[in-house]
């Protein structure tokens, strides 16, 4: 299982893209927003938590279709499905690799981008914490979407359509945590709920994803 994770990480680094693309996209979204809403610091500070969360979410979405597509094309997925490790574990490792190459860099970079959007005071701390807790859920939910669409020719757009509604609760609780944190309010409740969604998704969704892959391979 660890071998699978290492292989995926190695592939992501060798092929470039993996780390860079999501981050670059996140940066561009962050840069474009002030052009859209104006440079006024107060406005930016007010919308920064939401924009940063939406940006991170879209950056996550960008690389989802690569999770299984390459392995499906070159036959690795067939071979992994007949290998001694359970498909649920394969799916979990795939999600973990996606998080390490996409989610984790976003968590690290988000505070820096927060400066660009005039994020205030406590916000930096809560942004990092909420993203660290929430992005694993984004990867796991996204892996489920990727598993549903793995065999399809034009899966990319459909994947977004399927995954985005599933992202709603994570986004709400994540952005709410940062917003409350910025305003110096209690953040316990949304943070707990966010952690709950992540824990439940990580625990349960791999079964659904593995089932979807089995259906798609037959």
């Amino acid at each position: 299982m660890i071998a699978l994770l290492l292989r995926d990480l190695r592939l992501a680094i060798r092929a470039g893209g993996g780390f860079g693309l999501g981050l670059a996209f996140f940066l561009i979204v962050t840069v474009l927003v002030p052009f859209g809403v104006g440079p006024e610091g107060g406005t930016l500070a007010k919308i920064a938590p939401g924009i940063l969360w939406v940006g991170a979410l879209l950056a996550c979405l960008l690389s989802l279709d690569r999770i299984f597509a390459l392995d499906f094309e070159d036959g690795s997925l067939d071979l992994l499905a007949t290998a001694p490790i359970p498909l649920e574990a394969v799916v979990t490792m795939k999600a973990a690799a996606h998080w390490l190459t996409t989610g984790l860099p976003l968590v690290v970079a988000a505070p820096v981008f927060g400066v660009l959007l005039n994020l205030q005071g406590e916000g930096f701390f809560w942004l990092t914490v909420s993203l660290a807790l929430g992005t694993p859920a984004l990867s796991v939910i996204g892996t489920f979407g990727a598993a549903l669409t793995v065999g399809l020719k034009r899966g990319g757009l459909l994947l977004s359509l399927l995954v985005l509604p599933l992202y709603v609760p994570t986004l709400i609780f994540g952005a709410e945590t940062v917003r409350r944190g910025t305003e110096g309010m209690e953040t316990g409740a949304p943070l707990m709920l966010l952690a709950g969604i992540t824990a439940a998704s990580v625990a349960l969704l791999p079964f659904a994803s593995a089932a979807a892959i089995r259906v798609n391979l037959r």
Binding site: P165, L166, V168, F173, E176, L205
Partner: peptide
């Protein structure tokens, strides 16, 4: 899966 997340969304939106 969608049913679970739709319920979650309903709750999240109330919270929001």
């Amino acid at each position: 899966v969608g049913s679970v997340f739709a319920l979650l969304s309903r709750y999240a939106v109330n919270f929001w």
